[in-house]
């Protein structure tokens, strides 16, 4: 392997600055998992199809299997490990919105971003966002209930500007 293509990257992850030496062609998913031990984001296809690897970059959900780690220098990365008691985590637990749990970190990150970015999301928007993730265990009805509950709660209790 040509060591020359490795580079030291300083990434801002879950509010912490982490430094790591990685190949320039390495994806964010592999750097998070193998380099930094953040195994919450899951590989499901490495092809952009399943959403299991979803993390937030500057608050936007992205599929970390198709983004280079080096692209995220100077950006804020949030992984499932960085969520702190988010309402969506509670809702997922309450609504039995997962079984094997493998799709869950990706689903939760996407749903969390939806809730933060589109608190007034209508049916179509919810579907548009959440159809990015595949769950093979649940029927999605449980996930739908969890997400809608959080959105409703948020609407009922708007945060002051």
């Amino acid at each position: 392997m040509e060591e020359t293509t490795k580079r030291e990257l300083v990434l801002s992850i879950n509010g912490e600055r982490r430094s790591i030496v990685a190949r320039q062609s390495e994806t964010l998913l592999f750097v998070l998992r193998d380099g930094l031990g953040l195994t919450g984001a899951k590989p499901g296809c490495l092809n952009g199809d399943c959403g299991a690897c979803t993390v937030l970059v500057d608050g936007t959900p992205i599929k970390s299997c198709m983004m280079l780690a080096i692209e995220t220098v100077d950006k804020d990365i949030t992984t499932i490990e960085g969520l702190d008691d988010a309402p969506i985590q509670h809702a997922f637990v309450r609504h039995f919105a997962f079984q094997c749990g493998y799709c869950t970190p990706g689903f939760i990150m996407n749903a969390h971003a939806l809730i933060e970015r589109r608190p007034n999301a209508d049916e179509a928007t919810i579907q548009e966002w959440l159809e990015s993730n595949i769950c093979r265990c649940t029927s999605y009805q449980e996930i739908e209930a969890a997400v809608k509950e959080v959105l409703e709660a948020k609407k009922a209790k708007p945060t002051d500007p």
């Binding site: 293509t5 190949r23 320039q24 062609s25 994806t27 080096i70």
Partner: peptide
């Protein structure tokens, strides 16, 4: 996963 190396500019 990109199995080979490339440089990023």
């Amino acid at each position: 996963m990109v199995p080979f190396d490339f440089a990023y500019y």
